[in-house]
Design a protein around this nucleic acid. Structure first.
Length: 474
RNA sequence: CGGGGCGUAGCGCAGCUUGGUAGCGCACUUGCUUUGGGAGCAAGGGGUCGGGGGUUCGAAUCCCUCCGCCCCGACCA
């Protein structure tokens, strides 16, 4: 018997927890703030890794691996950086039964250890650019945790690059953000707002942070990818210098950029419904499930018919599974696979066998239709493509419906501070802080859509100097 | 770190007020019948009642103490 999923409208947080545990994506670990990513959830992560690796390689990046532990003297080298991260660093103080002479940080991010290594490797402008990416885990000691969205340990990808010029580094920062947008919108079907972080929301130690912001089903924002232009801050702190062709010794310009398993949390919250997950076909571990209705004397014939369909779809390169478990009824299986978010279900029974047809049931719309067995591979490919597009379109429509242009904060209150709000800002950090203390909302980004400032600061009513998108965030 | 909730079989819970053989539903095992939207019957297996201490003839239940987890808020991918 499957467990009930709490409806979104009753308790969104509980709905989220129900979905991720009952769809078998994760389980809670013995230590608070840690989780096990189970095979079904990890497979989604692997699709994300594949999609990114292809794009990273195509733009000249290589994967590498840096150590988990960072000596304290390295971590504190860049002043702003250490200030930003020190509250959430976990430390190793003992090893081999002895107290260590210098404590070692479990990496909260790797700029410092990467910087220390880069300074050893880079001597000449001929060594540049250095374009590396690392897939790893990091630890940030968080007070309040939620699976995928905020866990103490999480899996991510962090790119670290060094360039000869500022312009090249800034171009890298934008290029990587565009790769993220492409993966997140194209594979995960999550529409995003592209922008720049305000000074107060910037990565600790960065000169500029670009961001992708997504809107969850409860109207809260999720920062889903960031790309940082670090200027020469880290190059100076870690002595990353090169001899340029003019004979001058110069500091490199560095960038870093990252995305994490948080994306999976976003995927669930953007597409999920009261029946459970809804996975876009491109990242669905199982794209099609075949459910035989094997009744009485027809059982053997139906099953062999189902196997033929399975085989032909597999040959077409689809991820298909046949659910021939005979301890469950078809109805149970329908609900089970719907909860797990499988995009398309194919039902085959005695009727279909007789008419050489199958029934297709779409997870995105719930539609059922009977289609001919001939040409089924092509039909299924088309339907999956349509599901991928429909999920994106639905999410895009939701985003647009919950994105209001406003002139003052009272207008945001009418929407319960849910959704994205678009307004103007005077640029004062004091107003950014007032926004948060008064409404719980934060500046998500300064959107990069080219639209001009149109009015006064939504907080203080002084003339605006920047357009901002703001809202309550995870 | 504040506020709330909860620890009893794999999961969800009852039992605690008023101490007296540890129960229910689901899941699991076996058999038979079933199968086009969460199958039925029958017979089974499974427990340091979160840990420690105390009161008592006797503690899941009363007292003390520690631990853990979840949710909601303030900070963060």
């Amino acid at each position: 018997m499957l467990k009930e999923i709490t409806p979104k409208s009753v308790d969104y947080s509980q709905w989220y927890v129900d979905v991720i545990t009952k769809a078998d994506l994760v389980d809670y670990a013995p230590v608070k703030g840690f989780m096990v990513i189970k095979p079904y959830g990890y497979r989604i992560w692997e699709f994300i890794q594949d999609a990114m690796n292809v794009r990273f390689r195509a733009t000249g990046h290589e994967n590498a691996y840096f150590p988990l532990l960072i000596p304290e003297n390295l971590l504190i080298r860049e002043a702003e950086h250490v200030q930003g991260f020190s509250p959430e660093v976990a430390w190793v103080t003992e090893g081999g039964g002895e107290r260590l002479p210098e404590r070692l940080a479990i990496r909260p991010t790797s700029e410092t250890i990467v910087g220390a290594m880069y300074s050893k490797w880079i001597h000449s402008y001929r060594d540049l650019p250095v374009l590396m990416n690392q897939w790893s885990n990091v630890v940030r000691w968080e007070k309040a945790t939620r699976p995928f969205l905020r866990t103490t340990e999480f899996l991510w990808q962090e790119g670290h690059t060094v360039h000869r010029t500022q312009a090249e580094a800034e171009a890298e920062t934008s290029q990587q953000l565009e790769i993220y947008r492409d993966v997140i919108e194209g594979e995960l079907a999550i529409p995003v707002v592209v922008g720049q972080k305000s000074a107060g929301e910037r990565f600790a130690g960065a000169l500029n942070t670009l961001t992708l912001e997504a809107l969850m089903g409860d109207g809260r924002a999720l920062q889903i990818a960031t790309s940082h232009f670090l200027g020469q801050n880290f190059a100076q702190a870690f002595n990353i210098q090169f001899l340029d062709d003019d004979g001058a010794l110069k500091y490199g310009w560095t960038t870093s950029w990252g995305t994490s398993t948080r994306m999976i949390g976003g995927l669930i919250m953007v597409h999920g419904d009261d029946k459970g997950l809804r996975l876009p076909p491109k990242v669905a571990p199982i794209q099609v499930v075949v459910v035989p209705i094997a009744r009485g004397n027809d059982a053997t014939a139906v099953l062999s018919y189902a196997r033929k369909i399975l085989g032909s779809l597999q040959s077409a390169g689809l991820r298909v599974q046949l659910d021939s478990r005979d301890e469950y009824t078809p109805g149970y299986k329908y609900n089970d696979w719907e909860m797990r978010g499988v995009p398309l279900r194919i039902e085959v029974g005695p009727r279909d066998l007789k008419s050489q047809a199958v029934v297709l049931a779409r997870r995105d719309t719930g539609e059922k239709q009977t289609v001919n067995r001939d040409g089924l591979d092509l039909t299924v490919l088309k339907v999956l493509e349509s599901i991928q597009n429909t999920l994106f379109d639905q999410a895009k429509a939701y985003l647009q419906d919950h994105w209001q242009r406003i002139d003052n904060l009272a207008q945001a209150e009418e929407y319960g501070y849910r959704g994205f709000f678009d307004g103007d800002w005077c640029g004062a950090e004091a107003c950014a802080q007032d926004l948060q203390s008064q409404t719980g909302m934060t500046i998500r980004c300064l959107p990069l859509d080219g639209q001009a400032v149109g009015g006064d600061c939504v907080v203080c009513s002084q003339p605006g100097s920047a357009r901002i998108v703001f809202g309550r965030a995870y």
